[in-house]
Write a protein that binds this DNA or RNA. Sequence first.
DNA 1: CTAAAAGCTCCAGTCACTGGAGCTTCAAGC
DNA 2: GCTTGAAGCTCCAGTGACTGGAGCTTTTAG
Lengths: 148, 148
Amino acid sequence: MVNVSMPIGVLARSVGCKVQTIRYYEDIGLLPAAGRTAGGQRRYGETHRQKLVFIRHARELGFPLPAVRELLTLADQRESECAQADRVARRHLDSVNRRIAMLESLRAELELMLTHGHGNRIRDCRVIATLADHRLCTQVHHAEASGS
Amino acid sequence: MVNVSMPIGVLARSVGCKVQTIRYYEDIGLLPAAGRTAGGQRRYGETHRQKLVFIRHARELGFPLPAVRELLTLADQRESECAQADRVARRHLDSVNRRIAMLESLRAELELMLTHGHGNRIRDCRVIATLADHRLCTQVHHAEASGS
DNA sequence: CTAAAAGCTCCAGTCACTGGAGCTTCAAGC
DNA sequence: GCTTGAAGCTCCAGTGACTGGAGCTTTTAG
């Protein structure tokens, strides 16, 4: 077990994130402000650590911070309905599915670019030609290449 | 055919991007600076348009700007070797594959969260429980949820 | 008591744009 | 030729989710 009154660096190591990240979470009000020593340094207990684990886990699963905030609030209301947490997760699942579909069409396109016979000079290069001319695409690929 | 001397808005519409994006590409030196009217407005020709199409297409395929820059340089050197463009594309394919693999494990985790039986109160909620306790995960999911 | 490690705050930078304020130029209609 | 409204211009700030650094103070082990 980790000490009941950890400095920030120990907490950071114990959950596998950066010290700055923890301070950032406090800044934006995701993690409640820690108590301070007489000299002004933050000290954390087990409750903070559990909350941080929750946040990091949700982030690893790709939930954007607003969703994490929502889930955290829900987690604190142990008597409220589960349906809302399900909705958040389902919404995220939808976005994950959309991203997978898009990446798969990109993969197909890239594989086509790479496996197609081509000369060894740029002027005959399939990769370059495909990029220069959209009509050579077999796949539909539009919009949102990023985001969580 | 689009006019041989387009203002920036016409060019933007013709390739499907924002006016500011074109100015941004000029700022960072990705697109060569356009000629100007006496009054200081940019005017574009077909060469610019082709370059912009190339850039947008590469971006839609998820290539990060440094890679696009590299590909553009290659495209301009029509006699150089194709192998280098292939390497850029292959590197990108690898990263796409990694992202797909990761997203698929996230999907599995999210589906598990959602399909598992659970009570209708937060205290019995599988979604919340999974986030709070990493040990409930069946999937390995680490690090880089973003980036190309 | 000293010295190094770790903490603190504040600011800037990342990536690839996007939006807005406040101003100027262009082009069509009269 | 003049008006007027759309579209252009520059510059600055903001996005998301951190990350890194400067310059300082506090803690803690020896």
